[in-house]
Write a protein that binds this DNA or RNA. Structure first.
Lengths: 201, 201
DNA sequence: GTCTATATTGAGATAGAC
DNA sequence: GTCTATCTCAATATAGAC
């Protein structure tokens, strides 16, 4: 007659709700952005009260940080699961495609470069920065490799390519195409990849 | 002994201050974005009180709208002043270069696609939308011409190119390069143009 | 742990004296 | 037209009952 099962069950429910909160936060963030997202929005959409929400996350900043960390971990997992036989360019292309599809499905862009406040907040978030740096190291290595193999322009500095690559993961053209063109998601992804790697020409 | 000169002089000073306010708003907007920019910031930086600021602009939305309208008019003037002998691709390149330099000098990006609130506010701003549509018509014509002449990819739909073109004017890679690389502004512009038109390869 | 009700703060906007 | 002082309201965060 241990009481552990009950506690464990409660914990499990708690964890599940935590994921539900993060899911909601992700959608709201991607729709309204950080500043316009309110804790009332989140609590209301999840179907709990605000104080309960604060039992899970002690501040708005922490909540948003965790949502972004989960996203980064998704990216890191995706990279880790990539076929080791793929070349650096294929990996870069695959990850960009993944990021675009996540966004088209209502997910978040990496690196919300939007608000100075958000950037600053994330820079103070060690857990987040750890993952950013890990992902960045891997991407930088891929870009350098691809440049060495002549698959990416050697005329461009590595950081120009790398920053531009990040920028493509949050390219606003995606939302505009989704909203104002009748294109399928597959077509949007295909075209955005082409523009990123080949340019307008 | 007409009183007109005095009134005219006052009016002139009023107009001058209006420009000063817009200058300040432009810088603050580009640094902190819409949500973090406060009317206290603006009043403080201009050196006037908040009620005086509200004599010039009856709301924050109107102030920001006017700042963005001034920017768009700069772009329209720039396009109008372009050598008529230039081809469509050269014009597109020149305008993108202009936009990047404006931003590197502390100016604003076109189309602050950042916040849903800002987008919505601008859509309601007829004066702003009038200029957006005018600029958009001209750019669309250039892209179509360039595609017909085979200077831009004919595989890509026109709106993909057009939206991506807009996105390059507010590419966050610019700020990252400015902040984290030791590159000169000229080099940043050169590289960003190359990435936009030729892609990473 | 969950809720209702409330404290607190920050920022847009204005009243009213000069 | 300009300012000081203030209003108002929305949103983060919490106190306290159950």
């Amino acid at each position: 007659m241990s009481i552990f099962p009950k506690i464990s069950f409660k914990n499990q429910a708690f964890k599940l709700r935590e994921q539900a909160i993060l899911d909601v936060a992700t959608v709201v963030l991607s729709n309204k952005g950080y500043d316009l997202m309110t804790m009332d929005d989140i609590a209301g959409a999840v179907g709990i009260s605000k104080p309960s929400l604060y039992k899970h996350f002690k501040s708005k900043e922490e909540l948003v940080g965790e949502a972004l960390i989960r996203l980064l971990e998704g990216a890191l997992d995706y990279v880790a699961a990539l076929d080791a036989n793929l070349g650096p360019l294929q990996k870069l292309s695959a990850l960009l495609e993944w990021a675009l599809r996540v966004r088209l499905d209502g997910g978040l862009p990496f690196l919300p470069s939007t608000s100075a406040h958000v950037r600053e907040m994330l820079m103070r978030n060690l857990k987040y920065m750890l993952r950013v740096r890990k992902l960045n190291r891997q991407l930088e290595a891929m870009v350098e490799q691809a440049q060495e193999q002549g698959l990416l322009s050697r005329d461009l500095p590595t950081d120009v390519i790398l920053f531009s690559y990040y920028a493509r993961t949050c390219d606003p053209a995606v939302e505009y195409l989704q909203k104002y063109s009748k294109m399928s998601n597959d077509d949007i992804v295909r075209h955005m990849l082409k523009v990123a790697f080949e340019g307008f020409r």
